[in-house]
């Protein structure tokens, strides 16, 4: 009898201890709302809006130089690490050797048969072999990465942009397996030693999170066009796919365009005008 009651006591005490542990967390959550009762959050009046942001890439207007410019503009201004960058050993001592297969990229140049592996025709128009195809996140309408993410760290904004919340990402890399376009990169290590000049207008990432193109959401919010558009000398146009009067839609109306792996049903928002 004695034995039994002691066990009961321990069980109850254990359950009570769990309850006590949870209590402060709940208080904290409750304090969230009262601090800013009358406050409001808003978008900048300059912000650009769209029902569904999309991109058209006029491949003919691209060449290797412009392609390089685009990647450079995007990567430097988003603090994407470059693992070929020589590490400043004074600021970052003990930086280990680099595995270049663990690289990070947001927008980059691919040959046609890599960008469109399912359109690899036997007798392809010769010029296609040499054109640089810029590939990036497609901001798919039915994004498999959004579906896969177990924490909603990757999610679709109302305006169609597939964004990552780097604060929330647990680094499971399910989204990387889910993405049919290889558009995602994982921070296998702290990226900072490999950023030549940190752009103060955009955060870097920490080790252990996935990252990708955000269609310059931070610039659209200020009423500016994405970096790639500005660096592309007219080869990249970004606009509202749902607006028949937008530049993107006008281009698509007049020209034949293709999308990557259309047959998968992900509905990419990046169109290639060839």
């Amino acid at each position: 009898m004695m034995e039994k009651s002691r066990r009961c006591f321990l069980k109850v005490a254990g359950i009570a201890a769990i309850g006590l542990g949870a209590a402060p967390a709940m208080n904290f959550a409750a304090s969230d709302s009262h601090g800013s009762a009358a406050a409001e959050k808003a978008k900048s009046p300059d912000a650009l809006h769209a029902e569904r942001w999309g991109m058209a890439i006029i491949v003919k207007k691209l060449n290797d130089k412009i392609a390089k410019q685009i990647t450079h503009a995007c990567h430097t201004q988003h603090n994407v690490p470059d693992f070929t960058h020589e590490v400043d050993t004074q600021a970052f001592p003990n930086t280990r050797a680099v595995n270049h297969k663990q690289e990070i990229k947001w927008i980059w140049k691919e040959k046609f048969h890599y960008a469109f592996p399912d359109k690899e025709d036997e007798f392809l128009n010769e010029k296609f072999h040499h054109l640089p195809f810029m590939v990036t996140c497609n901001h798919c309408k039915n994004a498999p990465c959004v579906q896969a993410c177990p924490t909603q760290a990757t999610f679709k904004r109302e305006d169609g942009i597939v964004v990552m919340d780097y604060h929330r990402c647990i680094g499971c890399r399910f989204c990387m397996a889910a993405c049919p376009y290889g558009s995602r990169s994982f921070n296998f290590r702290d990226p900072r030693p490999f950023i030549a000049e940190t752009d103060p207008d955009f955060p870097t990432r920490s080790k252990g999170v996935v990252e990708k193109c955000n269609l310059c959401a931070e610039r659209l919010a200020k009423g500016e066009q994405p970096h790639c558009v500005e660096a592309s000398e007219g080869a990249i146009v970004v606009g509202d796919l749902e607006d028949p009067e937008s530049d993107v839609r006008k281009l698509l109306k007049e020209h034949y365009s293709i999308r990557r792996k259309q047959s998968l049903g992900t509905e990419p928002s990046v169109y290639y005008i060839v």
């Binding site: 904290f28 304090s31 969230d32 601090g35 800013s36 009762a37 009358a38 406050a39 409001e40 959050k41 808003a42 978008k43 900048s44 912000a47 999610f155 904004r157 109302e158 305006d159 964004v163 919340d165 604060h167 959401a217 919010a221």
Partner: peptide, 29 residues
């Protein structure tokens, strides 16, 4: 006083607003 006690909750709210709702401007009380 509120800032001292609650700045972390406020920042948490802010980052959700910026990252997830694309709201970047805060009109304080």
């Amino acid at each position: 006083y509120d800032m001292r006690a609650n700045h972390m909750s406020l920042l948490d709210e802010w980052r959700d607003a910026v990252v997830r709702d694309a709201d970047r401007i805060y009109v304080a009380a």
